[in-house]
Amino acid sequence: MPERIAVLGGGIGSLSAVLDLTSEPNWQQKYDITVYQMGWRLGGKGASSRNPAAGQRIEEHGLHIWLGFYENAFELMRQCYSELPSGSGTFNSWQDAFKPHSLVVLEEKTTEGWLHWPADVPTNDSLPGDGAPVPTLWDYVLMAFEMLEDALDQLHQHVPAKGKVELVQLVVDHYGR
């Protein structure tokens, strides 16, 4: 008699656990798994779907950006897509579902209006989830400083020379709290 397992919620943590259990050989003889989810969408906070009536426009709970250094998440998605029968979904492969993009613009609503914070994230030739070595903590620190330098350069391009000192002071005052 298989062990009965009830999984409460269809978020990524629950689904990852179920995927791990069902990856075992002969898992059907070992487990009887039921996932209980409110509503029809799986994925928890990361749930999204396509609306055919709106030209396959994506509908989601909020913006979710999958950055390339989410190695484990991409490895999981690659595993899921490898187990799907060809042509069984909206996307035929994980690479159809995810498109590389290096420019991210975050926005902040202030009393004066919207501030735009563009960041051009560095790219490389690796594919996320391929098991290649990930950068070290020090590599990320250096990349963060490079991105900060680029962001400040972009801000300086839009500020008159006499206002640059005031801009730096404004940023320090606003974010230095």
Rank of each mutant, 00 (worst) to 15 (best):
I58P: 09
C80H: 09
L19N: 15
M77I: 11
L148W: 06
E149D: 15
G44V: 10
S93F: 00
R78M: 01
C80A: 14
P2R: 08
P118D: 02
D20E: 15
G9D: 04
G55V: 09
G62F: 10
G39Y: 05
G43A: 07
T90I: 12
K109W: 02
H158R: 15
Y81N: 08
T90A: 14
E59H: 00
K45I: 04
V35Y: 13
W138H: 04
Q29L: 09
P160Q: 02
Y81S: 07
P160F: 01
G176Y: 10
P100I: 02
P135Q: 13
I5F: 02
T90R: 05
E149H: 12
W117G: 01
D125G: 14
F98K: 04
N26G: 08
D139G: 05
E60H: 06
H61A: 09
L152V: 07
N72A: 14
P118Q: 04
G163L: 10
I12N: 08
K164E: 02
P135L: 08
V121Y: 07
V141Q: 12
P118L: 04
S88H: 12
A47P: 02
G9T: 10
G113C: 11
V168K: 06
W138Q: 11
S126M: 07
P118I: 00
G113F: 08
P52S: 09
S82F: 02
K30N: 00
T136N: 03
A144K: 13
G176E: 07
Q157W: 02
G113M: 01
V7D: 11
S16M: 05
P25N: 03
L15K: 01
R57A: 14
L15F: 09
T110E: 04
T136M: 07
V159P: 09
Y140Q: 07
S93L: 02
Q95I: 08
